[in-house]
């Protein structure tokens, strides 16, 4: 349970307040295997340790990627790290997105803000095995056009004929000719078959709340919706108690939950 040293290969600024760290094992050439949706506990020397989802390609186990937003002490310190610096890694922890279960069905991915980061490994996986899925639709909402994460990748994906990408922003700026409004506004006209589609949702809790409602309004069953939850975490292995959500430990029973299994908790305040 002690952090493994990883070396920072690159620090890439994504937006004004988000960045991606590309890490490689500092100890040797061991590969880092993970499943889409899992997270690591990242440690900055002398500052602290926090859970951050893995945002890279699960097929490329030589590089470990984490995209995060600078909001707290640790993420701010992380943002000041540079190439060659060492960061501590514990993981991977948690449950994955149901990329196997979704095979043969339409997949609708709904992401809000930095919530796109934990979904990116699932997208990589599905695009690498494109023939296993029917329609894949990505609905992404950002605060402003300049907050759009993975911009280049989104442009490339959007040009692809077998992936639908719809983007919206809460607040437009001059020059923006795209959608304006919350991400849920994209759901009614998104092209997927609600009877068979599997929905993967990640973003702020309030966004997930309304997304789940809108998906159900389209006819997607709660058992076909998966959401990724966030809670305070200290250990990652279910013994510190911080991440409890009802009877679940988000660190090991989540972060990805099938919605019908936590519906009764998700709808309650201060659980």
């Amino acid at each position: 349970m002690i952090p493994c040293p990883f070396r920072i290969r690159t620090v890439r600024r994504e937006t004004q307040d988000t960045f991606t760290l590309e890490l490689e094992p500092a100890g040797g050439s061991e590969r880092f295997a993970f499943k889409p949706g899992q997270f690591n506990m990242l440690y900055v020397f002398g500052v602290g340790e926090i859970p951050i989802s893995i945002s890279g390609d699960p097929a490329n186990a030589g590089v470990l990627m984490h995209t995060t937003r600078e909001v707290g002490t640790v993420t701010k310190a992380m943002g000041r790290l540079k190439r060659g610096d060492i960061i501590g890694v514990r993981g991977p922890f948690g449950t994955p997105w149901p990329v196997q279960e979704a095979e043969g069905a339409d997949v609708v991915i709904v992401a809000g803000g930095i919530g796109l980061a934990p979904l990116r490994p699932a997208l990589y996986h599905m695009l690498a095995h494109r023939d296993r899925y029917e329609k894949i639709v990505l609905l992404y909402g950002a605060r402003t056009p300049s907050d759009i994460l993975y911009r280049r990748e989104l442009q490339r994906w959007r040009a692809q004929f077998d992936l639908e990408v719809h983007i919206t922003v809460d607040r437009a700026m001059s020059g923006w000719r795209g959608n304006v409004g919350v991400v849920t506004s994209l759901i009614p006209r998104a092209p997927f078959d609600p009877r068979s589609a599997v929905a993967l949702v990640c973003g702020p809790e309030i966004m997930m709340r309304f997304t789940v409602l809108e998906l159900q309004r389209r006819g997607v069953l709660p058992s076909q919706i998966y959401i990724s939850m966030e809670r305070n975490m200290k250990c990652g292995v279910g013994i510190c108690g911080h991440c409890q959500l009802g009877h679940c430990f988000v660190c090991k029973d989540g972060p990805v939950f099938r919605y019908d299994r936590i519906e009764h908790l998700f709808e309650r305040r201060e659980i």
């Binding site: 349970m1 002690i2 952090p3 040293p5 020397f45 002398g46 790290l81 060659g84 610096d85 501590g88």
Partner: peptide, 17 residues
């Protein structure tokens, strides 16, 4: 105490169980 880490040089450290 769960573990200690020692800084060794610029931006590097190692963890001691």
């Amino acid at each position: 105490r769960l573990w200690q880490a020692e800084r060794n040089g610029d931006g590097r450290f190692h963890v001691l169980a």
